[in-house]
Design a protein around this nucleic acid. Structure first.
Length: 316
RNA sequence: GGGGGGGUUCCAGAGCGGUCAAAUGGGGCAGACUGUAAAUCUGUUGGCUAAGCCUUCGGAGGUUCGAAUCCUUCCCCCCCCA
C-alpha cells in the first residue's frame, strides 16, 4: 500500500505517492545553478521548475540571468517568463501553481527539479504557507498612502491597534512588513498574527535539498564578472526599453534600479555598474544567510557534480 | 621662489584641549524574514586575558594634570601668484 497523504483543501485533489521526490538545487546568485541544472535534470529525467522570482517576468532576460536558449531548449523549464512585469504575483500563487504542475509532472517521472535562489519561494513550495485573505490592490494602495502621509509612526500606531501581538514582533523600522500586516488585518477582519501561525504543510513527496556554494572570493569575482558581461550583452538597452515601467515592483531589481538611478542623474554610469556589483554581492549574502537554516541540505561546490548527484539520489 | 589649504580609524569626511576608540556617510562583516523577497529591515565595524586595559588621528620633539585638537620642526599632498 503506497504511502498516502491527505492534502489541504486548497491543493490539488489527487493523492501522490511518497516515492516521488522533489529535488531542490539552490544557492546564491551567480554560483552556477543553471550550469549544473541540465545535467542533473537529464540524470533524473526531471523537468525544471524555476524558483527565481525575477525570472518569472518575460520582459527581463539579461539582468535576471535567464538561462540561455540552448539550456531552455534542452530540458523543459517552468515558471520562466510566464508573467509580465505588470502582473501581480505572490508566493501563494506560485505555491498553488507549482503544486499543480508537480501533480502533472509526477505522473511521468519520479523526480522534479527545482532550481532557483528565491528562498521564500522554495520554502513555500516545500512546506507551504499559511492561508491569508486575498485583498484588492486598492487596499494596499490605501495603506501605502496612509504611510506616505503619516509616516512610520503612523502605520506603527495603526498596526499596534490592529494587532498588538505582531506589533511586538515586527522590525519596528520595516515599513513593508508593517504595511503588509495592516493589509492582512484589514482584509481578514482579524489580527495578522492569528493567521500567521507558521503551520508546516506535509507534502506528498519527499524532498532532497542541495545548496550550491563557493568560497566567498570565488563567488564574488564571478558576480563582478557576470555584471560586466551583462552590460556587454546589452543590459542597458534592456533596462532602458523598460524605463517607463521602472516604478513596477518587478523592476525594483538589482541591475535595473541602479541604471535608472544613472539616467535620473543620481550617479554616473560607472557608479551604477559598481553599485550593481555590490548590490548583487549583498543579495548573495542575504541568500546565504537564508539558506543556512536548511538543516537537511547538503552544501556542495557546483563543480562537484558527482557529489551533487549523490546527495540528490539520497545516498549522501 | 612667494602666498594659502591640507594630511584623522578600510574609504570619504567631521572633530579643533578633557565628556574621543573619535560624528556622519560609504564599504565590509553578521543577522532578521509567511504573498513587494534580486524586495524590505536590523546589528556591528582598532586590539585584548573585555563594566578594565593597550595601541590609534603623517613623523619626531615640546607645552599641559590632560593633546586628534596648542607650539616647534621634518616629510608628503593640493591650490594661487611667480
Amino acid at each position: 500500500m503506497p504511502f498516502m497523504v491527505k492534502m489541504p483543501a486548497n491543493s490539488p485533489t489527487i493523492f501522490w505517492m511518497k516515492s516521488k521526490c522533489l529535488l531542490v538545487i539552490t544557492g546564491p546568485t551567480a554560483v552556477g545553478k543553471t550550469e549544473v541544472s541540465v545535467e542533473i535534470a537529464r540524470h533524473f529525467r526531471a523537468e525544471i521548475i524555476s524558483a527565481d522570482a525575477r525570472q518569472f517576468y518575460r520582459e527581463l532576460h539579461i539582468g535576471t540571468a535567464v538561462p540561455p536558449k540552448e539550456v531552455l531548449a534542452s530540458v523543459p523549464h517552468h515558471f520562466i517568463g510566464h508573467l509580465s512585469i505588470s502582473d501581480y504575483y505572490n508566493v501563494a500563487l506560485y505555491e498553488q501553481e507549482a503544486l499543480k504542475l508537480l501533480d502533472k509532472l509526477f505522473r511521468y517521472s519520479d523526480y522534479a527539479l527545482v532550481v532557483g535562489g528565491s528562498g521564500l519561494y522554495i520554502d513555500t513550495l516545500c512546506r507551504g504557507i499559511d492561508p491569508m485573505p486575498d485583498h484588492s490592490a486598492g487596499l494596499r494602495k490605501e495603506v501605502h498612502q496612509f504611510y506616505k502621509a503619516e509616516g512610520l509612526a503612523g502605520i506603527r500606531a495603526w498596526l499596534k491597534q490592529l494587532d498588538p501581538d505582531y506589533f511586538a514582533q515586527v522590525d519596528p523600522g520595516n515599513p513593508q512588513r508593517i504595511m503588509r500586516a495592516i493589509e492582512v488585518c484589514l482584509a481578514g477582519g482579524k489580527p495578522f498574527s492569528a493567521m500567521r501561525v507558521r503551520n508546516r504543510q506535509a507534502r506528498p513527496f519527499s524532498i532532497r535539498h542541495v545548496v550550491l556554494n563557493r568560497p566567498r572570493a570565488e563567488l564574488f569575482s564571478r558576480i563582478n564578472e557576470r555584471v560586466d558581461n551583462m552590460i556587454a550583452d546589452g543590459l542597458i538597452e534592456e533596462a532602458m526599453g523598460l524605463f517607463e515601467y521602472r516604478h513596477l515592483n518587478a523592476l525594483n531589481t538589482v541591475g535595473y534600479r541602479e541604471l535608472y538611478g544613472w539616467v535620473s542623474n543620481r550617479h554616473s554610469l560607472a557608479d551604477a555598474i559598481a553599485k550593481i556589483k555590490t548590490n548583487t554581492r549583498r543579495y548573495a549574502k542575504r541568500q546565504l544567510t537564508w539558506f543556512k537554516k536548511y538543516e537537511d541540505a547538503a552544501w556542495v561546490h557546483p563543480e562537484e557534480t558527482s557529489t551533487i548527484l549523490q546527495h540528490l539520489e539520497g545516498k549522501g
